[in-house]
Design a protein around this nucleic acid. Structure first.
Lengths: 328, 328
DNA sequence: ATGAAAGCGCTAACAT
DNA sequence: ATGTTAGCGCTTTCAT
């Protein structure tokens, strides 16, 4: 900036102002400054700006895995809303591990983000404390936390699955199984399984057809393997709900390999409304959790909070049951 | 840091050293400092560190879209290699648009990353210049650039498709079509189509069965729509190669809906070795471009370059043809 | 509309 | 092993 100031015969402060959006600078002066900057190959140094102004325009975001279309959609929504306002997302992957999440949150906070959005409503004690003391907006997503740290944009995974169970029962299925929902790592999957269990109980059915598909992420292949076990262990199963569309599609392919027709011999439901479920033959009944909208709402909430606008503390998303051929 | 220094009776400089990895600090002193830091709820401020030390530990990365398993894999590989060494990735999405890429690169460079990895080997003139003048390692990926800016980790998309054409012809297919490869935005897709065209010509076949699936990203649905057009326009087609596994799977579902058997009535090939292709029924013949390895190699290359180790300037990945049921 | 002075919170460089 | 000094490149604040 000093070089540009010298070249244009103004003070560094005027150069600084010329680069800001609402800078109160004479138009001609600004043009001269921008021209000199381009000629000198000047690149604005935000590290200095960050330090002095205590504004980084970073938004920290943690997701379990980048390689999941649902979370990618959420980040996409967040990114579109926030980068339009000049924010840069600092993305980190927890790999579905709360210890890893803690490390990640600690590292991200050192970068002085102006807000942080985390996936899920359950964290280590220390992570919880770090977030509480960070003194920036904290938004938990994809869940309804038992004790929210700050704000949240989420939904009840259990209730969402319950709505699918109700649908299956209404259509006439009774011997219903569930695939996935590892208790050790994935709270959302676990909540979905809990929702399944309590819904079956409420209908007077015994929820013993539970197939463990291992810790997340649950691949299509693992869904297929789980389906194989289900078909072997509980031959009279009429319907199965899978923890995600990916495992549900894997389960479908296992049926295709065994020439078991879906839904005539067994119905299948998934979760997440991934693209695959809408185009597979048969198409998969699923729950649309509005992944992208979660990101967009989180982004708007952050913008409101940072601009001091008053805003609702909690946003509850309404997941939508989508009935397709696989359960009819 | 001053507070911690006061509380522990040392100088701020010692506190600073206590937080560094190889810090030459007395063990007891360090313990006392870390304890005081924890008690005071101190969070290290990297914005100040970044400015003073001219090291941000940021690595900038641009990809066309976050919602693509191939690019997500590349970022995953990059992230695993780099975050283990304390680097934070600054991710940006170009949405398959070179103008958007230019804006993105300009913004990312202001953050003073220590290296930048971009997807593809073609950029606007200005983006090219920005990268050249950035004075940090620049790595182009997923392609073999005509004029590399710095380093690259990639492969020839055209040659990869050529290997698939060779396979199709060897198996006996002659009337072969190609779906995708929009010329306006996606250089990788375009290169694949070029590879298809020149391979067919080399085999003495006329490559006129080209179905445009629109600008990227090409969804499964768009693949299905393209397949519908192919089946209507060129009824005697024996085989089709799609620009990606996603469109290939969409094409497969269109065949399933029309009760056209694959590969008996028409063979299908994809690109990218997405999970879907390995588990669909029939499984899809594809090209594994080693997306994750591209990320890992790019990460290692960056580590080498930043640590002054000498390293090969260009890494050429060897894509692998994977023959599955859909082309037998 | 522009300028001058001061300082953000660290760490490079040098000293002991 | 630890301390002192200075300063990274911006922007806040106050002045004109």
């Amino acid at each position: 900036m000093a070089d540009i100031a010298r070249a244009t015969g103004v003070s560094p402060m005027t150069v600084s102002r010329a680069f800001k959006a609402g800078g109160l600078v004479n138009t001609e002066t600004r043009d001269a400054i921008l021209k000199a900057a381009e000629e000198l190959g000047y690149v604005f140094d935000s590290t200095a700006s960050n330090l002095r102004s205590k504004k980084t325009d970073f938004i920290a975001v943690t997701i379990p895995s980048i390689n999941n279309a649902n979370f990618a959609d959420t980040v996409g929504g967040l990114s579109d809303v926030l980068s339009a306002q000049g924010f840069q997302i600092l993305l980190g992957y927890t790999n579905y591990d709360m210890q890893e999440e803690e490390r990640l949150i600690e590292n991200l906070l050192r970068r002085k983000p102006q807000a942080i959005a985390v996936t899920g409503g359950k964290h280590t004690r220390r992570a919880q404390k770090l977030l509480e003391n960070a003194n920036i907006p904290v938004i938990e997503t994809w869940d309804v936390p038992a004790e929210p740290i700050g704000h949240y944009v989420g939904f009840s995974n259990a209730d969402a699955v319950r709505s699918m169970v109700d649908h299956f029962i209404e259509v006439g299925y009774r011997r219903i199984a569930f695939i996935g929902g590892d208790a050790s790592r994935d709270t959302r999957g676990t909540n979905r399984r809990h929702g399944f269990i309590s819904a079956l109980r409420d209908h007077g059915l015994d929820p013993f057809r539970l197939i463990d598909a291992g810790p997340p992420p649950i691949s299509m292949r693992e869904g297929a393997n789980a389906m194989a076990r289900l078909l072997d262990e509980f031959r009279d199963t009429e319907a199965v709900i899978c923890v995600s569309d990916l495992s549900a599609f894997g389960a479908l392919t296992e049926c295709q390999r065994r020439e078991i027709s879906v839904p005539e011999q067994i119905a299948i439901g998934g979760f997440g409304d991934y693209e695959i479920g809408g185009i597979s033959v048969p198409a998969l009944t699923t729950i649309n959790a509005h992944a992208r909208m979660i990101g967009e709402r989180t982004g708007s909430l952050i913008l409101d909070l940072l601009s001091g606008k008053d805003s609702v503390p909690h946003v509850t998303i309404q997941p939508q049951l989508i009935v397709r051929e696989s359960s009819l």
